[in-house]
Amino acid sequence: MSEPTARTGVIHDIGYRKYDGPRLGRARVARALYSHSLRGAYGLGRSGRSKVLPMMLLGVMCLVAFIIAVIANVGAGITSELVLPYSAYTFTTQAILTIFVAAQAPVSLSRDLRFRTVPLYFSRPLERSDYVLAKFGGLATALFLLLTAPLLIMYVGALLAEFPAGRETGDLLLALLGTVVFAVVFAGVGLVVASLTPRRGLGVAAIITVFALSFAAISTLQGIIRYEVGNADLAGWLGLLSPVTLVDGFQVWVLDASGRAVAPPPGDAGGVVFVLVTFAAIGACWALLNLRYRKVSI
């Protein structure tokens, strides 16, 4: 005879429990928001549908790099160089970068504006500049990862093809510095535009317009002025006016990269100006975002 089991599930109402655990300060809260934004840029911790686009773009970036790595290995006997240098990869695949920024910058900022969640952040220990820093850092890191992953694949491919390891490593490190600048400039410009509208669709369209249109217009003008008018210097200066050509110019002068823009910055003076304008652009994005969130209605 088995004993009757009297033990059934009982729900206890334990009442309200006070919290006396640790309360982390501003810096740790900002870090939590940073990783939340970084994960959010790839749709992690969000619905399955919001993972599709960022993961697909990352996939395309890596696929192209993989093909380059395969070509390097197949043709190892013929050439000892990658068909596309590391530092030119970002410029070549800039359309993907633009789509990623256009899709994810509004996710980071416009949602909080549209659903009016912003006051909930600012009624907590976080300062407004912490919010901006966490969002800026989160998206910039997401872009850096998007740009770095394919470079690493190409690097592995180059090493497998037994290209000179020292040269490849040096090139890669320089190119990584370039991707940092690309990531910060693109994140900054994208977030400034996204912070101006609570409507996501509008944000996406505006960001694509800013990047793609400015690049198309500037490249065309550069072509006309350099080859039709014959003024290479003026064509080079025009590169300041579009984010892509600006950072490309920065790379050419600072990192001695092979530029892909129609016209490189004119001379050393031009190079210095490109560097200064790049840093000024990053500073301006930071200042504009802070200004925007100082005035945001609570």
């Binding site: 655990g21 939590a32 928001l33 909930l120 952040y121 907590r124 220990p125």
Partner: peptide, 16 residues
């Protein structure tokens, strides 16, 4: 998800 996030924004560690 939302309330967990706002709790973290108030300085609570993830598990708390």
């Amino acid at each position: 998800e939302f309330v967990v996030h706002m709790a973290r924004m108030s300085g609570l560690p993830a598990d708390a």
